[in-house]
């Protein structure tokens, strides 16, 4: 029930992120969600793509350091309190959140997609399954 996320190392210099999006555009790859964590001198781009493996291949060919990892992607209802419900369930389960971001546009009508990485992904999966909020898996075409 996990989904593959691509992480890319970025130098903190003007245009570095754009260089990545350029490579993805030229490869005809659609970015479904993206997030940049920044340090002082560098950053990590994390993204969900419609063709993660092709993107990894293209970026590595251009010298980028890449990594694939499993993240959780859930589709809470678009209503007040739904995100809180997810986060509360995780914190009640003693699970630390590493990072969270959401998609550029919803996968299904009216339902934003939340991408979550935690200190214990297996336990987080169990907690979220109990909430009966739809989870998106790698099998689903995002």
């Amino acid at each position: 029930m996990f989904i593959k996320q691509l992480s890319v190392f970025l130098q903190n210099e003007p245009g570095r992120l754009q260089n990545v999006t350029e490579i993805l555009k030229d490869g005809g790859i659609d970015i479904r969600a993206l997030n940049v964590s920044e340090g002082k001198e560098f950053g990590i781009l994390r993204c969900l793509l419609d063709d993660t493996y092709k993107a990894k291949f293209l970026l590595e060919e251009n010298g980028y350091l890449c990594k694939l990892s499993d993240v959780l992607a859930i589709e809470p209802e678009d209503k007040i309190g739904s995100v809180n419900e997810v986060l509360k369930a995780l914190s009640d389960g003693g699970i630390n959140l590493n990072y969270i971001y959401s998609t550029i546009r919803p996968l299904h009508e009216e339902k934003p997609l939340l991408v979550i990485s935690t200190s214990d992904q297996d336990k987080a999966l169990e907690v979220l399954q109990n909430l009966e909020i739809p989870l998106v898996s790698s099998k689903e075409k995002i």
């Binding site: 992480s7 190392f9 350091l65 890449c66 990594k67 990892s69 590493n98």
Partner: peptide, 13 residues
């Protein structure tokens, strides 16, 4: 940086 294990988190970097 050549080891992709560092892409786990900005902290590691």
């Amino acid at each position: 940086v050549v080891d992709n294990a560092y892409l786990e988190s900005v902290d590691a970097l």
